[in-house]
């Protein structure tokens, strides 16, 4: 009797968890589904589940420059991530393993930068960029995105290097390997999994960012997040619900796909952050 009651609790817990999962998935599923609805279909409340799929919304977003915006997002988020790794991995390795003078203070400053409000860094960059013609350029945005990407990449990578026990490099050291060889041939291969995870986390942050691009991208290099606003703002034509769904779908699908492919690394990274 007592046991039965306990099993019942377990079942209830299971049900609660799956109900929460459904709620958590509503935005994605509903978003994709709505993107294939015609204007008449989309206005139905409650929403219909069976309907004739239409590509109307995708035609609308094609006419509104989704291809350019997607291209901008891929370039900006991709290169921002790449640069933050190229700078971040050596920096993290140095702080974690080679411990130069003042490494504790440097580490603390970088940790601090991770928590700085974006407004505090984006506006001075805007003025500097305005004076050097970098506003509304891909290069400028990639540099500015380091506000988010670089502290994240350094701090997470450093955390992983810290966890590699020093014993793994002792044998190599006795064999006369230099610091660079140890970095390149021993510690970097060990950290491969974590580095994939860091890449994902940085990429997600860069892909999804609105604020920095909203300040620094005018017309030429708008990423998807900035482009999405046009459908919420168009006061004269009314808000375009279908286009919002289609635009959101295009923004979401690539990053979700990548994240789900590498979900193992991602969960580990979150758990270790």
């Amino acid at each position: 009797m007592f046991l039965k009651k306990k099993y019942l609790l377990l079942y209830i817990a299971n049900i609660i968890l799956f109900l929460t999962l459904i709620i958590a998935l509503i935005p994605l599923v509903w978003l994709i589904q709505s993107s294939f609805k015609s204007t008449d279909e989309i206005m139905k409340v409650p929403p219909s589940f069976i309907f004739e799929p239409s590509l109307e919304n995708y035609r609308t977003i094609l006419d509104n420059g989704i291809v350019d915006n997607l291209k901008n997002t891929i370039i900006i988020a991709g290169f921002s991530t790449l640069i933050s790794l190229l700078i971040g991995i050596p920096a993290a390795y140095s702080l974690s393993r080679l411990k130069p003078k003042g490494y504790k203070i440097i580490s603390l400053v970088i940790l601090g930068l991770r928590f700085i409000p974006l407004v505090a860094l984006t506006f001075p960059l805007f003025i500097i960029f305005a004076n050097s013609g970098l506003v509304d350029t891909e290069f400028g945005l990639i540099i500015a995105y380091q506000i988010i990407c670089l502290p994240l990449s350094i701090w997470l990578t450093k955390g992983f290097f810290d966890k590699i026990p020093p014993s793994v490099e002792e044998a190599a050291r006795i064999d006369g390997c230099s610091d660079m060889q140890i970095f390149w041939h021993i510690n970097l291969p060990i950290a491969k999994g974590p580095i994939i995870a860091v890449t994902l986390l940085v990429l997600i942050a860069a892909w999804n960012n609105l604020f920095i691009a909203n300040v620094l991208a005018r017309g030429n290099v708008k990423p998807l997040t900035v482009g999405m606003q046009q459908f919420l703002q168009s006061e004269f034509e009314g808000v375009q619900y279908g286009a919002i769904s289609a635009w959101g779908t295009v923004t979401t699908i690539p990053i979700i796909t990548i994240a789900l492919i590498f979900n193992k690394y991602l969960i580990k990274a979150f758990a270790n952050s």
Binding site: L17, P27, T225, Y241, I244, I267
Partner: peptide, 28 residues
């Protein structure tokens, strides 16, 4: 609990989606 792996993986999804997308979509 049954389905732990599925739960752990798919709970990630809202967090991976852009705030901009979720915000605009839920607003409507």
């Amino acid at each position: 609990i049954k389905g732990k792996t599925i739960l752990r993986v798919f709970f990630l999804i809202p967090m991976i989606m852009s705030e901009t997308v979720v915000g605009a979509f839920t607003r409507v």
